[in-house]
Nucleic acid binder design. Structure first.
Lengths: 235, 235
DNA sequence: CAGTGGTCTAGACCACGAA
DNA sequence: TCGTGGTCTAGACCACTGG
């Protein structure tokens, strides 16, 4: 039991409330004066806790108004989890989406790659095609946890792709991506309108909210039609 | 001209000295007491500046010892610029490198892709092959600025790949990567020992130190032999 | 041991901007 | 206007650890 600094404890409690969803985006955080009273400490102490959270992007702080839970940062998240409709539109092309299949299933091989979901956990399985200017761009196969995303059955994924809906409705706390290349399997090549064995950029991504798996997706991008970019450093 | 907070000015000055190389890794930063005197301010003010830099990973602070410029953190950088010899070894394979060509040239088409270097800037052009357990893993083509890296001619790139040398000897401040897939061009396929048109993961990366271009590299990884991974979130 | 950073206090003045 | 956060002060005690 190492003694934890008070500003660290304050920070951890608020951060936990935000990440767990108890404090939703837009919620107001008590003012520094209120927190001084609650924790019986000096203002600099709560200020350090809140400033740290603001620097981490979890809080928006505005004079006179107060401190608020930050809205999910589109810019920051876009760098890690691309939103294809937005990216296609940014290239000046018309985005399209075609749902190929959708069904419930228990998490089991062959779709539950590498045990992302708990054995027996019920998931929604989807396959679909992303289009740019009417041309196939990417094929994707996705599993979504019904436990972590209970409202999922109310969404019409024939109209819009599941990735965008999740990105804008479900907060996530961790993500892992694997990026590679592969020759398209027969089914994928046919959907993409390419020759079997066509070179593709492959992307497999898992996302979590706390300890719960949210979704698992595998995407095949036709070579040359899409590139991932990453920037590091200032500006 | 907006007035800048003093702690922000202190932070910016020290950060600038670190990024410019004036304060090399391991260099000692004046103690908080010394900085109080230099800037004629309270200790909390310099403490805020130094704490921010430490949180950003630019400083290591140790009680009794002092504050020091952090060594380039292998872990952090490995996530952004992979060091192939290290990664291959981590997979339990034997790394190998084969230099295919090396020559000086002025930056000009076709090698100066998209004007990364200034017109007429002299660069070192290299081509080589990365091997894992004796099998071709990746082909790379690289330009290195002779102006930004003057010692480059003293290095023997027949013995070790240029990327590793640069990563361990030249501090960089910004990097940009483009990741895609392509069918290997004839020359690349031949070097990789694959059929012409084999699917490859392609990676093009530019790195800068301040405003100066350091290097530009294009790599082709044989599909299935290498994957990029990215993690976001805690732990 | 003693110098360093880590933390905290109880004030203060100011800039901003929503009410 | 006036509550809020942004910044700063001049102290203080403590934990840690290198010399």
């Amino acid at each position: 039991m190492k003694p934890v600094a008070l500003h660290e404890r304050i920070r951890a409690e608020i951060e936990g409330a935000i990440l767990s969803g108890a404090l939703p985006p837009g919620a107001r955080i008590p003012s520094e004066a209120e927190l001084m009273t609650r924790y019986q400490c000096a203002r600099m102490t709560v200020n350090k806790a809140l400033s740290t959270l603001a620097a981490a992007g979890l809080l928006d702080r505005r004079r006179r108004a107060g401190s608020f839970v930050a809205r999910p940062r589109t810019e920051s998240q876009a760098l890690t989890i691309p939103d294809l409709p937005v990216e296609v539109a940014a290239r000046g092309q018309v985005y399209g989406w075609s749902l190929l299949s959708q069904r419930h299933q228990g998490a089991a091989p062959p779709l539950d790659w590498a045990g992302h979901f708990v054995a027996g956990e019920r998931v929604l399985a989807l396959r679909g095609l992303h289009l740019a200017d009417g041309q196939p761009l990417a094929w994707e196969e996705r599993l979504i946890s019904l436990g972590a995303v209970p409202d999922i059955d109310d969404v019409d994924f024939a109209a819009s792709p599941p990735g965008s809906w999740l990105l804008h409705h479900i907060p996530w706390t961790a993500a892992q991506s694997r990026i590679g290349a592969a020759n398209a399997p027969r089914e994928v090549a046919r959907a993409l309108g390419a020759a079997s064995g066509a070179a593709c950029l492959t992307l497999e991504r898992r996302t979590w909210r706390g300890d719960d798996s949210i979704t698992l997706v595998r995407q095949y991008f036709l070579a040359g039609r899409y590139e991932l970019t990453a920037h590091f450093g200032p500006a």
